[in-house]
């Protein structure tokens, strides 16, 4: 069972960085897990705590946020807010016994295709070890 378990990852990608980097993964012909779902948002600041929780609730084994590097956000604080919301949710997740690792954030830039792929694959392996989400 655990052998064939392929964790489902929802990646929220800022249109200014993460989404372009995800495109670049394709251009570099690096592979990504099939179970990765990409959600495109105009800015990481658009991502509501509610969306992140919903993703977990609807069966994602892990949620990743791809935001711009700090001090490189067109909306100045979008990436910082996303990070703060993640921190807030980590608190809740701890209380309800959900592993913090299931929600993570990665700062990158448009040309960080390799980093995007690496982050996703790393998270994929980590979640594999962690096992399926207990709320599924």
């Amino acid at each position: 069972m655990v052998e064939s378990f392929s964790p489902r990852i929802v990646a929220f990608c800022c249109d200014k960085s993460g989404y372009v980097a995800a495109d670049m993964v394709g251009k570099l012909r690096l592979s990504l897990p099939e179970s990765l779902d990409i959600v495109r948002v105009p800015c990481a600041g658009r991502i509501d705590a509610l969306h992140l929780l919903q993703a977990l609730e609807k069966g994602a084994d892990g949620v990743l946020i791809f935001a711009c590097h700090e001090e490189n956000c067109q909306s100045l604080t979008g990436n910082i807010r996303a990070k703060a919301r993640m921190g807030y949710l980590h608190g809740i997740m701890e209380r309800i016994g959900l592993e913090k690792e299931r929600l993570d954030l990665c700062n990158l830039a448009t040309n960080n295709g390799a980093k995007f792929a690496e982050t996703v694959l790393q998270k994929f392996d980590e979640l594999k070890k962690l096992g399926p989400s207990p709320v599924e």
Binding site: V41, P42, C43, G45, R46, I47, G78, R81, R85
Partner: peptide, 21 residues
């Protein structure tokens, strides 16, 4: 159109027209 206000609004009064909840 960054949507920071949308995700911050405590009463869900704001909609981002091109990317709704």
């Amino acid at each position: 159109g960054c949507g920071i206000c949308v995700s911050s609004c405590p009463t869900k009064a704001i909609t981002l027209k091109h990317l709704t909840d």
